[in-house]
Amino acid sequence: MDPSMSSPHSYFPVTHSPQVGVLPEVASLSSEELEDLLNCDDKLTEFVAALPQVTALNKQCDQLIIQNEALAKANLERSGDYERTRDAIIQKLEEFTSLRTSFEELTQMQLKASEKLAPASIQESLLISSIQSEEESEKIAEDFLQKHIDVESFLGSYLEKRIETHLRKFKGERLGAQLRELHKAGF
């Protein structure tokens, strides 16, 4: 087995250096210089600040600060656009909500109108109005029998109401027959 190998399964040689993990800058200092650094905080701070790794980190921090400032400025410049866009979206949302409410109301009105104008509803309305016309003609006849109206007024209004009653009844029955035929045909 190779003595530079730490174990039979290791592929990396182990270096036995007394300065492992020591910065080359520190290794090049004499004992007196090291003692001086340990005794004087200002010199130690200067020494650490002059290290290439610290200098590189400081430059990187400065670059990051510049980038952050640029991003902050760009964000501030865009904040106006953001506010305008947000306000426009809020306005559009309010307009949409209003239009949706209006649409729902109109849909309900349309459904009611559709129900009212459905052939079955029309037939029912015709039959109800024929019953009402018949009741009105009976009231006219009663008024005549109780001598509240004269013969000419009675004949004119009574005949008119009876014709109206029969026409409505006829139209309702005719519409009902047509609806039954359509229903038999599958419509």
Rank of each mutant, 00 (worst) to 15 (best):
D2Y: 01
S130W: 00
Q108Y: 06
K184C: 04
S31A: 15
Q60L: 05
H9C: 05
H183R: 15
Q132G: 01
R162Q: 14
E142W: 02
A177H: 11
L71W: 00
T55E: 11
S130M: 04
A74P: 01
R180Y: 12
K169I: 01
S17P: 00
D150Q: 08
N39C: 10
D36R: 07
E32W: 02
C61Y: 06
D62L: 10
L76V: 04
E69S: 12
S4E: 11
L182E: 06
E32L: 09
E160C: 05
S125F: 02
L155W: 10
R168Q: 09
Q19H: 13
E33W: 04
T107G: 03
F144W: 10
Q67P: 00
Q178N: 12
E83W: 01
R168C: 00
M1K: 07
T45R: 15
K92Q: 14
D41T: 14
S31W: 03
L145A: 14
T15G: 04
F12I: 15
I89V: 14
P3Q: 05
P24R: 12
L155N: 15
F154A: 08
K169Q: 09
E95K: 03
T97G: 01
L76H: 04
K161L: 01
V14A: 09
H9M: 11
L159V: 05
Q19I: 12
E69Q: 11
L64R: 05
N68K: 11
K73W: 01
A50V: 01
N39R: 14
L127I: 08
R162W: 03
Q67G: 00
I90S: 04
L167Y: 09
M5V: 06
S7I: 06
E77D: 13
V26N: 06
L111F: 09
L23S: 15
R162K: 15
N68T: 07
I89N: 07
E135H: 02
S157A: 13
K147D: 13
L38W: 12
H183F: 02
I66S: 14
L44T: 11
E136T: 08
V26S: 04
S130C: 07
A49W: 03
P3H: 06
L106V: 07
S125M: 08
H9N: 10
G21Q: 10
G80H: 09
F96Q: 06
S31D: 13
A185R: 14
R162S: 07
P3C: 08
A185W: 04
E138G: 00
S157N: 12
Y82T: 05
L167I: 12
C40I: 02
Y11R: 02
N75P: 00
L167R: 10
L93F: 03
E25L: 08
E95L: 08
I66E: 15
A141I: 02
E94Y: 08
R84Q: 11
Q108P: 01
T97E: 08
T165A: 08
I90L: 10
A74T: 04
Q63S: 13
K92N: 09
I89A: 14
E173K: 14
H183K: 15
E173L: 13
K92W: 01
Q110E: 11
Q110D: 06
L93H: 04
L64W: 09
E124T: 14
